[in-house]
């Protein structure tokens, strides 16, 4: 899929939370594109800023959080500066949203059919009868059995998995170009997770909808995404094709993260572990945010924040891959895969 101009462009996005101790930068200079029909996975641990990036794009940052700088461009139109009302219209038409808890996205007082038809009627000029037909069609499409009967039921009459299907139907009502899905499978049982992932993939393929899939679950990413952005402490550590990132992680953080995931069939007495934990927003070190935990840390990592350097098909924010470095690319990759420490002793903080 080669695209002239990407569907969504995020440029140097910064999300801040003003507090009485100064502004906390929760998303710090994040840039990425999503092409039409592409699934971009955004993965990271809690507090990495992945959900906030998604919320900034759909214009639903919870106050006092705000986009402090940067641009969000959807189909060539800048949307981060729009008013709430304008953004609401875009959310209905061009961007759909799926959240973790299907219960909070559905109004418990209205039947599923009413919520679907109202959304359709608000954003298109269909007749009510047509809209109802469309709603039934959508429910069929997301795999809800007997949609003619279930359309008049209320959210509490659906099981968790079925509810999430309804939410997906709701997000797809008016054929959005982009769906932002924030942890869509986290609240579901494993067998239902697989069903929902399969459904998302199918819809993406059939409608050409792009999906920004925010999750902490590498497994979901591996199953679904085309490309993946790995976030750490509000920044993108690594972004690239999913296969590259998972099988061939280049950033030391991604590498450690992948090693720490237990897998069936991998017999190891101990899992690889990254020492320490992600810094709090109040305590992000200067230079590379990962420097306190990195095995390959150099003096420079404590001074300068690494740029997103192009490495093969990916972009990696790590000084190991700087062309000014004495190391060649192969050496750098080997270094990350090995457990040897860098030139500077690891800072014990």
């Amino acid at each position: 899929m080669t695209m002239a101009s990407p569907l969504l462009q995020v440029r140097n996005l910064v999300v801040e939370f003003p507090t009485r101790r100064g502004a906390l930068t929760a998303v710090d200079d994040v840039s990425f594109d999503i092409a039409e029909g592409e699934v971009l996975g955004v993965v990271g641990e809690s507090g990495a800023g992945k959900s906030l990036t998604g919320a900034a794009i759909i214009g639903l940052l919870e106050p006092p959080g705000r986009v402090a700088s940067g641009e969000i461009i959807l189909e060539g139109r800048r949307i981060d500066t729009l008013s709430y009302e304008q953004m609401r219209r875009i959310r209905g038409k061009q961007i759909g949203a799926i959240f973790q808890d299907p219960l909070t996205s559905l109004n418990p007082l209205y039947s599923v059919g009413r919520q679907l038809t109202e959304t359709i009627l608000t954003h298109t000029d269909m007749t009510p009868t047509k809209a109802r037909d469309r709603a039934i069609e959508l429910l069929t499409e997301v795999g809800i059995p007997a949609p003619e009967r279930r359309i008049d039921q209320y959210p509490h009459q659906f099981s968790g998995g079925m509810r999430q299907r309804v939410v997906i139907a709701l997000a797809l009502c008016v054929n959005p170009r982009l769906v932002v899905a924030d942890e869509p499978t986290t609240a579901l049982d494993v067998s239902i997770q697989a069903q929902i992932i399969a459904l998302l993939k199918k819809l993406c393929r059939e409608h050409g909808t792009a999906i920004m899939l925010v999750t902490h679950d590498m497994g979901v990413i591996a199953e679904t995404a085309d490309r993946v952005a790995v976030m750490y402490a509000g920044r993108i550590a690594e972004i690239g094709p999913v296969r590259e990132v998972i099988k061939n992680a280049k950033h030391p953080y991604t590498h450690g993260l992948m090693g720490s995931i237990p897998a069936v069939g991998h017999d190891a007495e101990r899992l690889e572990q990254i020492p320490g934990s992600m810094p709090r927003l109040t305590d992000i070190p200067t230079g590379c945010a990962f420097n306190r935990r990195c095995l390959h840390v150099h003096e420079r990592c404590f001074k300068d924040r690494p740029d997103a350097l192009p490495v093969e098909d990916s972009r990696v924010a790590c000084w190991l891959y700087d062309s000014a470095n004495a190391m060649s690319l192969d050496e750098a990759k080997r270094a990350v895969a090995s457990k040897e420490t860098g030139s500077v002793e690891q800072a014990n903080v």
């Binding site: 494993v190 697989a194 069903q195 992932i197 497994g219 199953e223 998972i246 069936v264």
Partner: peptide
């Protein structure tokens, strides 16, 4: 249950999601 384990080895195995809840 085993078939629902995500495929981190990227073998491209197509999973057969079991119907029903």
């Amino acid at each position: 249950l085993l078939d629902t384990i995500p495929d981190l080895d990227m073998t491209g195995r197509e999973r057969m999601p079991v119907a029903g809840e």
